[in-house]
Amino acid sequence: MTPDDSHESNAGLEGLLAAERAAPAPDAAAQARVAARVAATLAAGAGVTAATVTAATAEAATASVVTATSASSAVMAGKVFLGLAAVVLAGGTVVAVRLRSEPPPRVETPVSVAAPAERPVPAERPAPIDRPAPRVVVPARPAPPVAEPPAPVAQPRRVPRVLPVQAAPPAPASLEPAPPAVDAALIAERGLLAEARRALSTGDTAAALAALEAHRGAHANGRLGEERDALEISTLSAAGRRAEAAERAAVFLSRHPDSIFAASVKKYAALPNP
């Protein structure tokens, strides 16, 4: 610290800052949840492609790629295997999502990221402010093997928000150049539906319905309304609200008799009321 701190002792402030520097790592579950959401978002932005979700804890020196078919997470021997690999399509198809995707646009051999303290610093660069070197060392770890060459994943053109929040205008400080609004809206729609599918695949029908309702509120005239309604019907059925699902299914079929989702919706319309 500097003489600027006229009101507080340097030692006292430094002690406070030291406590914050030693902040513990976030829990592995949060890291896994974010990984799943990132994977779902990337998959949604890519039009739903590929494969497996993997997350590694900050403490773990290694991580493994795990292909899973269920949407549950487990912590195993210091590794977090996020099994949220299943993204259920509206038609019932299950695909896996690979978070272990390549950096766009080129594919390179995975390498460890060297800790900042270990990097060569150009001689002409000034020294750090008041401190000679970074304290926190990012643990380097070997990259896990890749079973097969991953399919190229199209990059989302804009950050799709999974939350039920209407796309906001880009902030001046944003990294992104303003993309066409039409694409942003579509990606936002996809993000919400992906979130609903993810929640449904984990059995969290309430969250799935909330995401679908958010879609309805934010994109009342969106391009994926038909898909939303079909997904909502299956979610209602999964939630045990079969009568409501059947009623919605009948309405859906009357409005969209030629829908690509009609076949899957029909079975809910035929369900007997409990």
């Binding site: 590694a56 990221v113 770890r141």
Partner: peptide
């Protein structure tokens, strides 16, 4: 020394998540 290779997204996620979170 050869130039360092670009890290994978997975490695950035694993190594940078705690930093980003805090």
């Amino acid at each position: 020394a050869p130039p360092p290779s670009r890290p994978t997204f997975e490695s950035v996620y694993a190594e940078g998540f705690t930093h980003v979170w805090h």
